[in-house]
Design a protein around this nucleic acid. Structure first.
Length: 688
DNA sequence: CTCAGCCTTCTTTTT
DNA sequence: GAAGGCTGAG
């Protein structure tokens, strides 16, 4: 991760016996140095891809602390919890001791704030967080209740949530969002508004907050209560925001409020990497920062430590097509490497075979498998490749699609704990009830009604005091007992999960799934992960807010085996690999057809830019020439516009024709040196 | 009246 | 592959 050019922290830091002193001049280039040692006041840092942004932020934190800023006075807002953790660890290493900087995502900070001040906006103690799926279920249910199932045209829960969420995150009206994103539902605006109102109410009464609430309620608490606002402004005299290009209006407003008193605000970002507008991110936040802060100092980090000049040239040429951006030109600090390959293959299966074969070659040439990645626009585009890799027994790790914590068995098991921390959590109750044999929607509703009416629902269920259909009496009683056991382990999330397994859930998994063993294993791993939390509430909140399955701790099998990485471009942000394959560069896939709305093309191009700049040395851009499209057998695909608009000399074309039974073609089995490999990559286009 | 199983359809990106 | 819709069995 750290660029090779400036010396690493450790070597600079600790001459034996000498007190730790940080040599900023040696560790940073002049642009980085200016950022790290800037004074107070608002500042905007435009940090190009691979320009040592994280490093600079880490040194900035260190510099502040060394110059007398108490670490507790620093607030570091990042895009993922992982990024925050990494920075804090590195700052700690640099300063040679614990650093009590507060850091995390906006949502995480919102959660902490609401745990403390939630009462100010009407939140009950011990509220639970509904993830995206839960929230969609809930609002869908509300929609069904309000208009009956017969209302045909009523959008599904996911769509409803999408609308409501987008409205919340962009500060626009529901009517506005519907008109722009779901014009087909234009005649239902009134209904949707009503549903949104009831949904908000329902969350309140169930003690549930969704992701958006973590921001909107926090913001409300700050806006409406001067004492709370002042408390935060005093406590966090220095505010640092990473990935500012992906903040939305709510987040920008939060930042403005938090930094409102002291104005020691530093935002860091790269407008060329803004790729979250679908989530309400507002590109204008970074483009127009100086309008809100006319006195802001602007810094740029343009020296790229990651990629070869060849890769950077390609990325620069692509992004130059975008109009809306801060002017900047990245230049490489790396020695030249092979030109990126442009590989056209007949069909998706050939593409999969080609990539698998190339991966084998690169690995045989000495490249560690975990330094190789395959990136794609959408998760489902990785299916053929996954099958191909599995067939060849090449170990891989998928960092897209269903996340660990969204898998059915994880949600099932944690629902028991959610009931324990928040007995009003309707979603958790219904989820658990529906697991029981003979219990469907109707019975679940009936039991839930009983639960609502009861002062001690768990006891009533265990004693059979809730009226249920004959067929499920025993199952429901067992559930009551299971919940009682879970309750007996209160605030021991690990023990609670074990209890869930022991009280029948393990049996349920065995009866239901082919891969029951792996799922039980997952839950055991989760249970041991849970031991690090002081209570069940903390554990559950953390689960809802963790990003992705890439959190090392909870990998399905604890094997440290080096695996190649398959990832969406979105999830690859901030990461890098020696070799990167971008697949499915077909117009309509990447760029994605549905994303090509207004302003969509530029965002897709930024996405392509992000993909290309993940590569250090090898970059291969792949596409199938022909692919199935719906019912049609083979349709000729137009190559991605992002490839067409590139000057030809930037890439080396590789045309892999026809039904080669040996998709590997010629390969460098001999002397697996890097030279060898480069030569092979550069010239070789005779594949058939 | 309730549930489960089989059918079709359509696949964006995520805190 | 998973979610909604329809059907038949209990």
């Amino acid at each position: 991760m750290s660029p090779p050019d400036p010396p690493r922290e450790e070597s600079v830091l600790r001459p034996p016996d000498a007190p730790a002193r940080i040599d900023y001049e040696r560790a940073l280039n002049p642009q980085q140095l200016a950022v790290a040692r800037a004074g107070g006041g608002p500042m905007l840092v435009i940090a190009g891809a691979g320009s040592g942004k994280t490093r600079t932020l880490v040194y900035r934190v260190a510099w502040l602390v060394e110059n007398g800023v108490p670490a507790q006075a620093i607030l570091l807002l990042t895009f993922t919890n992982k990024a925050a953790r990494e920075m804090l660890h590195r700052a700690e290493a640099l300063l040679g001791g614990a650093v009590t900087v507060t850091g995390g995502t906006f949502h995480h900070a919102g959660l902490l704030a609401l745990r403390r001040h939630g009462h100010a906006v009407g939140l009950p103690r011990g509220f639970t967080i509904a993830d995206r799926g839960d929230a969609a279920d809930l609002i869908g249910t509300v929609g069904g209740e309000v208009f009956g199932k017969k209302e045909k045209g009523l959008p599904r829960g996911e769509v409803l949530l999408d609308i409501v969420s987008m409205a919340a995150n962009t500060g626009r009206s529901i009517a506005d969002v519907v008109e722009q994103r779901h014009p087909s539902h234009g005649d239902l605006v009134g209904e949707i508004e009503r549903i949104a109102g009831i949904y908000a109410h329902r969350k309140q009464s169930l003690g549930i907050v969704d992701f958006d609430d973590l921001l909107t309620l926090w913001l409300r608490a700050l806006k409406e209560n001067e004492d709370i606002r002042l408390e935060y402004q005093r406590r966090f005299a220095w505010v640092l925001v990473d990935e500012y290009q992906d903040t939305n209006i709510l987040q920008a407003e939060l930042v403005d409020l938090l930094a409102g008193g002291h104005r020691n605000l530093m935002v860091v970002g790269d407008d060329a990497q803004s790729i979250y507008s679908f989530r309400g991110a507002n590109f204008a936040n970074i483009l127009r920062f100086h309008e809100r802060y006319p006195d802001a100092k602007i810094f740029k980090l343009e020296q790229n430590y990651r990629s070869t000049p060849q890769i950077l040239e390609l990325a620069n040429a692509s992004i130059a097509r975008n109009r809306a951006q801060h002017a900047k030109e990245l230049f490489s600090a790396q020695p030249p490497g092979p030109r990126p390959l442009l590989v056209a293959l007949p069909r998706p299966e050939d593409q999969a075979r080609y990539v698998a074969e190339r991966i084998r070659n690169l690995a045989a040439g000495g490249l560690p498998p975990d330094d190789i990645a395959v990136l794609y626009r959408s998760h489902f585009l990785s299916m053929e490749l996954q099958m191909e890799l599995a067939r060849r027994k090449i170990p891989f790790e998928v960092r897209s699609g269903m996340r660990f914590f969204e898998q059915a068995h994880v949600k099932d098991a944690t629902s028991y704990l959610r009931i324990d921390t928040n007995p009003k959590d309707e979603l958790a109750w219904k989820r658990v009830l529906r697991l029981l044999p003979g219990v469907g929607k109707v019975t679940a509703d009936r039991v839930w009604a009983g639960v609502c009416a009861s002062a001690d629902p768990v006891g009533d269920l265990a004693e059979g005091r809730v009226g249920v259909p004959k067929g499920s009496v025993a199952a429901i009683r067992d559930l009551g007992r299971a919940l009682a056991t879970v309750r007996s382990q209160r605030d021991n999330p690990c023990g609670q999960l074990e209890a869930v397994l022991a009280c029948g859930y393990e049996q349920h998994l065995q009866d239901t799934y082919e891969n029951a063993h792996a799922r039980v294993q997952d839950l055991r791993t989760l249970a041991s992960y849970a031991t690090r939390f002081p209570g069940t509430g903390e554990f559950l909140s953390e689960l809802a807010l963790v990003s992705g399955g890439a959190e090392g701790d909870v990998a399905r099998d604890g094997t440290p085996e080096k695996k190649i990485v398959l990832s969406t471009v979105h999830q690859a942000k901030g990461l890098e690999w020696a070799a990167v394959f971008v697949i499915w560069l077909v117009d309509g896939r990447f760029p994605d057809q549905r994303a090509l709305g207004e302003g969509g093309e530029e965002e897709e191009r930024r996405l392509f830019y992000v993909a290309a700049t993940r590569a250090r040395v090898h970059l291969e851009l792949c596409l199938p020439v022909m692919a199935r499209e719906g019912a049609y057998g083979g349709v000729i695909q137009r190559q991605s516009r992002f490839l067409e608009e590139l000057p030809a000399w930037l890439t080396t074309p590789v045309d892999v024709r026809g039904d080669s039974s040996r998709p590997g073609g010629r390969r460098p089995e001999t002397g697996a040196g890097e030279d060898d490999d480069n030569r092979w990559m550069d010239g070789d286009s005779d594949w058939s």
